[in-house]
Design a protein around this nucleic acid. Sequence first.
DNA 1: TTTGGCACTCGATCCGGTGGAGTGCCAGAT
DNA 2: ATCTGGCACTCCACCGGATCGAGTGCCAAA
Lengths: 338, 338
Amino acid sequence: MLSERRLEVLRAIVQDYVGTEEPVGSKALTERHRLGVSPATIRNDMAVLEEEGYIAQPHTSAGRIPTDKGYRLFVDKLAGVKPLSSPERRAIQNFLEGAVDLDDVVGRTVRLLAQLTRQVAVVQYPSLTRSTVRHVELLSLAPARLMLVLITDTGRVEQRMIDCPAPFGEVALADLRARLNSRVVGRRFSDVPRLVQDLPESFDMEDRPTVSTVLATLLENLVEETEERLLIGGTANLTRFGHDFPLVIRPVLEALEEHVVLLKLLGEAGQSGMTVRIGHENAHQGLTSTSVVAVGYGSGDEAVAKLGVVGPTRMDYPGTMGAVRAVARYVGQILAES
Amino acid sequence: MLSERRLEVLRAIVQDYVGTEEPVGSKALTERHRLGVSPATIRNDMAVLEEEGYIAQPHTSAGRIPTDKGYRLFVDKLAGVKPLSSPERRAIQNFLEGAVDLDDVVGRTVRLLAQLTRQVAVVQYPSLTRSTVRHVELLSLAPARLMLVLITDTGRVEQRMIDCPAPFGEVALADLRARLNSRVVGRRFSDVPRLVQDLPESFDMEDRPTVSTVLATLLENLVEETEERLLIGGTANLTRFGHDFPLVIRPVLEALEEHVVLLKLLGEAGQSGMTVRIGHENAHQGLTSTSVVAVGYGSGDEAVAKLGVVGPTRMDYPGTMGAVRAVARYVGQILAES
DNA sequence: TTTGGCACTCGATCCGGTGGAGTGCCAGAT
DNA sequence: ATCTGGCACTCCACCGGATCGAGTGCCAAA
């Protein structure tokens, strides 16, 4: 276990490095923080911290910079979550309240988060499986062509075209619509498969294939596939990364375009509470010099999706975490109201 | 007017500079292009081209690079559109044909375009005003709460929640739905306002406010506001820009996030045929060192939206234009089929 | 355990010199 | 007229050496 002062030294190193972006030395530390000891003592502490793997030297005779492990300790033990100032809170609320629909809410959220943290913001659309069904609508566009529309309690709407194996009458359509709704409205999407399983059996032989097609579309395309929408913003903030641009930011941009990767990243974030993944803790190659701060948000007590930011490992963790948490809360409120 | 050979020299300069990314001198030119004259002659030509403003020197005793004006002349007079190879064409077709819905088509298109041109791709969703109505649906979610769903012939679907001033019966709802559809199905969105103008009058006094609200939502939110969706991809290609990164790419990333700016940019592109905007021809500040190649695409003869790429002014214009044109055509085909 | 002192390391920065690509100009050839 | 070869000149890019300074590790003393 590290002594109290050594932890204090680590905290100071992280803070200074985040601020200055330059390796920090023993002398500078004693000048900017009242540690009450001489540089020589700090040097000894630093040697220990380095041996333990919390800090590293870019090269001999340079200052130290925190390692991923160092940031990890900092986040876990040394730093809290910095609450936002009340003007900031008010600004968030004002900004989000103007939203007219779900797309707008998500769009505003991503912009807000990017601006607040000055980093890349990622917002996942409320997931279907964790939402409940508000309404299912079936429209007949042509004799053998239907449109399926799904509306969730979070305001999300999804639709799919369906080509039927056989023409489907208006009566049967109304019947199917009514039965579907009576079974699934108010239920969670994850329960839908179980709830509609036996539905085809109650229809005429001739209509069963069509009913099955509709159900298959509902299950395959909607419940499973559309899990994965998300929005990204603030990529311009990547330019504040470091001086050795192309090599660092290129893979990050590539990773950001791979929505699948990002979704996995967000998915790995713990179900409740805020998750911070630092540097190499991120599985993806291109993101080994970035940290991801993510948290779930939802209209009720339960998370229906995640949001977060991606930034350099050298980031202001307390501030970022504060902003992410605050935004998630307000978005949850907005969703609950609508 | 410039002599034939001087134009040839300009073409050679553009081609070499695009290839090597380095200022090109007289000697190198004679070596890589059979111009049939000596470097000294080329030097004289270059002096003239520079005087006319087509090329410039980064500094004394360096080679020349094309100016925006030079690229302009190159694009207008010296270069054609390079058709894609047939493997490329086949790849495009295969890639686009797997799309399941409009979102997917647009998503695939943007990825395809980015990969093909190795630049940033921008694809606008088919615009509403230039599409026709396939179906309008009204759902009752709660006594005084409706959902309006719009389906276009390009497969685009839009929806809006409507809070009614008064409860609205199922009968009246069915009536409104039927009347709406009979009036607008198959018509262009731009005609919708005219077509529904007198609709409230045919309803009972008590229902008129609600009908008006529905129509207002239809017109304001859908026809006007949702003009502006677009998708961007391939931002990682920005890293191939130049060596002086942050200063150049930052404003570009910022501009790309301002969808309004991009939409204006695409909008300015001529209604028919391909448009190339080079460097300072772009109104927006952040894009003065980029060129935009855009073209309209649509399911029929008429363009319903635009797509294009944003890249450095130093780009392979013939190749880029070829790719953009080819992709636009195939997307048009796909849309027409669905 | 802390402190001051000291020698050492190593990147960053600043020259001065060199090489080479490219230019502009001019006089002669075509 | 136009093109060409020659020539002097400019200026960037590159290299090696010198210097500077922040920072370190170690040690002996407090």
